[in-house]
Design a protein around this nucleic acid. Structure first.
Lengths: 145, 145
DNA sequence: TAAGATTGACTTTTCAATCTTA
DNA sequence: TAAGATTGAAAAGTCAATCTTA
């Protein structure tokens, strides 16, 4: 039999809303950042990943944490390095690899972005869910990863 | 006081997972479509929106349903029209506006895409949630929209 | 030969300006 | 003047090929 297994209505609805809710919240947050004269979430994510690592991160490792293709990350880092936000250095262990570090300018930018990001996130997500709902949502989303 | 209202840990976690889960599922589905020699979800979404409308849709209306910027949609429709998937027509009510319709080729493409999309969605989302979980997830996401 | 990363060529998105009709 | 839509130029993303070192 070549019956097609179609996702249930509940799954189709959940998927449609997953994509849409993420889009809506992201667009709102991006708009708030832009209105404040700040870069978007793509840059924030790189800065934050480097900051919380607290040490140089191999480029490939950074890419896999951020779910970015190699060539994509390569070009993003080019632009961020050109703006003085990050620095690329040779990797001591492996001469093929590069390592990325946050500059003080990058650290300072992330610090300025966070209050705007946090307020936007609270408005777009936090205010719309109770604590319990946010926790349940987090648990359910974890199952998809 | 200029205290910054920071989202709770539960909200921050839910947000991070929302973005990541949507990314992971989308990337998987896109990969399956590409492997089958089919276009990606951006095109599917336009085709589906037109098909379920069952009638010509004003371009602006289509854009707001799909959360697409005007210029973005304009160019996407250029490409899809060039490939014979949709047609633009003058809008009877308003000479400024354009109306978009699905061609039979577009309808046929969507029909070929759906089984692949459905199977990929089932694998990436449906199989990871019980019916109840999918329903709860859908309810929670609705609150964000 | 394979892994890490970059690059040239091409496609898509974005911004600002523009065109047409309400 | 404003709304609907398009367009040129610039930015970002994508694919395939390439370079260097393991």
């Amino acid at each position: 039999m070549t019956e097609t297994t179609v996702p249930s209505a509940a799954v189709q609805t959940a998927w449609a809303r997953l994509v849409r809710a993420a889009d809506i919240a992201r667009a709102g947050i991006e708009a708030d950042l832009k209105a404040a004269g700040l870069p978007g979430l793509d840059r924030y994510d790189v800065l934050w990943e480097l900051e919380r690592a607290g040490a140089p991160v191999r480029q490939g490792e950074l890419g896999s944490r951020l779910l970015l293709e190699r060539y994509n990350l390569s070009r993003r880092l080019d632009r961020m390095a050109a703006d003085g936000l990050v620095e690329r250095r040779a990797c001591a262990d492996d001469a093929r690899a590069a390592v990325v570090v946050l500059t003080s300018k990058g650290r300072e930018l992330r610090a300025r972005m966070w209050p705007v990001y946090a307020a936007a996130l609270q408005e777009r997500v936090g205010d719309k869910l109770s604590g319990r709902e946010a926790a349940v949502l987090g648990e359910l989303l974890l199952k998809l990863m």
